[in-house]
Amino acid sequence: MTTWMLRRLIQAVFVMLAMTVIVFIGVNVIGDPVEILISPEADQAERARAVIALGLDKPLWEQYWRFLLGAVQGDLGRSFVFNEPALKLIAQRMPATLELALTAVLMSVVIGIPLGLYAGLKPDSIGGRLVMGASILGFSLPSFWIGLMLIMVFAVQLGWLPSTGRGQTAELFGVQWSFLTRDGLAHMAMPAFNLALGNIALVLRLTRAGVRENLPMDYVKFARAKGLSPNRVVFVHVLKNILIPIVTVVGLEIGGLIAFAVVTESVFAWPGMGKLIIDSINVLDRPVIVAYLMMIVVLFIVINLLVDLLYTVLDPRVRLETRE
């Protein structure tokens, strides 16, 4: 277990180093942040001053070296745009994205698994076919379009839900959250559903496939022959067996939803990290891009770790050492 964790940790450090090198070179190739940030009216002297102020006059390797020195001391640099530490900016925006992504994951599990079970157990019923048909729409329609349609119908036409923004927030653990207020929940309903839609479809289809695959298996027949109630067969034995692929996918999707909620965030003007990273890329705000991607790498590593640990709980045959 310890060697396994250690190996994971070393891997993570290398992934992160490689990522920072790629970002430094990539941003450098795309363009010059000063060209984008500076007032168009700035004269040549002002331009030269800005280049020095942002430390961009140094050779790239030296900029990288300075970044590494800072990173070791926990300082990932200051945003070129906001003049605040990059980590602080990300931390400010993180709660909004986290609550949106976690609500979306919750929705995809709570809606996806029951519908998937239904479609798997009654594949030939009209309801089952309808669910499967709808699921195709769920992951094939582009999410920005669905987002706009949701706004048009529920906000503009019916006026039931607010169209954009985060609404009223309340404080918990020193952080502002929307899910604690009625107004905040109303604001969150559409973006969370929009974000969840693709995943509901995914979880639903995985569940259905699992159920269809497992039902004819010997252990199900044996359980039935033993006289267990159909509910116990499905909800305890079958469900446990189909959960492994679902846990894997949901785990990866949590990371994906947090890291790439940008489309939903911009359609609903949700002030999360996705908007921050896109804005930062547009102005080549390198410190924020690097800090954000480093955080996402850490996030994925932690999630994969948790997923692996969860496997051992779900299936006692799985050993961590052999899963490398």
Binding site: P33, V34, L37, A50, A53
Partner: peptide, 10 residues
């Protein structure tokens, strides 16, 4: 003003 990417010095 520190780290200004576009100053009013202009």
């Amino acid at each position: 003003v520190k780290n200004s990417p576009g100053s009013f010095l202009l």
